[in-house]
Design a protein around this nucleic acid. Structure first.
Lengths: 231, 231
DNA sequence: CCAACGCTTCGGCTATTGTCGAAATATGAA
DNA sequence: TTCATATTTCGACAATAGCCGAAGCGTTGG
């Protein structure tokens, strides 16, 4: 009756504050160096080193060496998905870190959730796509419509067919912890955020570990034109 | 940059062996008493009591008092989903509890994953439904076809329309940790397993905390007739 | 070549948390 | 009413794991 995977080992890896801070920093989807992760976690480099070794042994992160630098990233989107789920449980249980600083509203407005847009704007985008019948959502199933494919091609020069990926869905509903509603994940969600960046509508906060997405004035206008409030 | 949910708190709750054993035991979808959970976790009742208080404070479980008995269950399917995800990560990282006893093959053959069928038979069922075009799966998106609705009504007396649920999808692909492929979750997956039980094709192992599903001889035949190997 | 920097390894310390014995309270059955 | 059982609470103990200083190794740039 105790057969099966031992979730305690994995969860204990995430359950340490220093390690969870590192994993959260990696939810930006960026690779960060050991030093940057040490800073994010608020520990010394030697402490971070031993933590990272554990995360790597547990297959939660993987590393790539560049000269003297060690870059770490999440092993794959499955890890990010579990971390998202944990974020939802933590938010629901009220385990929020109270930092009502200037960054908090920005984080709620628009932020990266691994590789796709989240926050107020992320939720608004999915809502708008549903109202425009670009996607169909039944509960947590999201499907791109033919009209949606044309929209993506015409307005954003994104080809849905090119987003095929053996292990990730095109569309996935991701529960937004700040809005408590869904935003769009999957390869399409990632492609859209990438396109926003290419078009210079939005850019990521440059601070390592920051998840904030800053839209330009023009970007906000373009975003509103495509995904604004629709009756 | 440390704003947002504090996943360390939730993960640390899962990361203790005694507590993770309890949560795993509750993945059967059944409510268990504090004593039964203490037994599953291999600790004394007083230790279990303090653990359960923590899990309840963390909103991972909820309790219902019946006389002298306290029944605990997982708070909701979101908790189960995160635990499933952790199981997948643990299995991938090779954190398997080596108990190659008589129960292990049974667990791999057919078991409950919260409320739907998993294991070899669970994976086979989804495969067959795909080959018979009862469902369409593109990566992790699963959609019931019109033919599938008729099949469910005719063969199992299950009405897909009656499975509507505000917070759960009809179909969800759940990665099976023993088969490393998908089985069917969601309200439909749950309804199918329930129907097998009603039809007396299958029954759950009566031991508290056991996830094994035992098919009868007749049940195996009926299951094979509906979901057997199809070319 | 030398100095600076990134990262790892080693060893010792300490705080935290899980554990159980003991005791108390509530419920159910005879 | 009494006894058995389920569960909770309290207090003490011990083991573990995270922490950092010190030292070492590898890489980079001047």
């Amino acid at each position: 009756m105790k057969a099966g995977p031992d979730i305690a080992i994995v969860a204990a890896l995430v359950g340490d504050p220093a390690r969870s801070n590192m994993l959260t920093a990696l939810m930006t989807g960026r690779a960060l160096t050991a030093s940057e992760l040490a800073y994010q976690a608020g520990v010394t480099p030697q402490t971070a080193s031993s933590h990272l070794a554990k995360l790597e042994a547990g297959r939660l992160v993987e590393q790539e060496k560049q000269g003297r630098h060690r870059y770490y990233r999440l092993s794959d989107p499955d890890v990010a998905a579990v971390l998202e789920g944990l974020e939802g449980l933590a938010a629901r249980a009220g385990h929020m870190r109270v930092r009502t600083g200037p960054k908090d509203p920005a984080l709620r407005h628009a932020r990266v959730c691994y590789d796709h847009l989240a926050g107020d704007l992320g939720v608004q985008m999915l809502d708008s796509m549903k109202k425009q019948r670009l996607v169909r959502q039944r509960k947590q199933d999201i499907e791109l419509t033919a009209e949606g494919e044309r929209f993506l091609t015409d307005s954003l020069q994104i080809s849905a067919d090119a987003l095929s990926h053996p292990r990730r869905p095109l569309c996935r509903a991701c529960l937004d912890w700040s809005e408590r509603r869904h935003h769009l994940a999957g390869t399409l969600g990632a492609a859209i955020l990438t396109r926003f960046t290419e078009l210079k509508w939005a850019m990521r906060d440059a601070a390592p570990g920051s998840r904030v997405v800053n839209f330009t004035r023009n970007g906000e206008k373009r975003f509103a034109a495509l995904f604004g409030e629709i009756e």
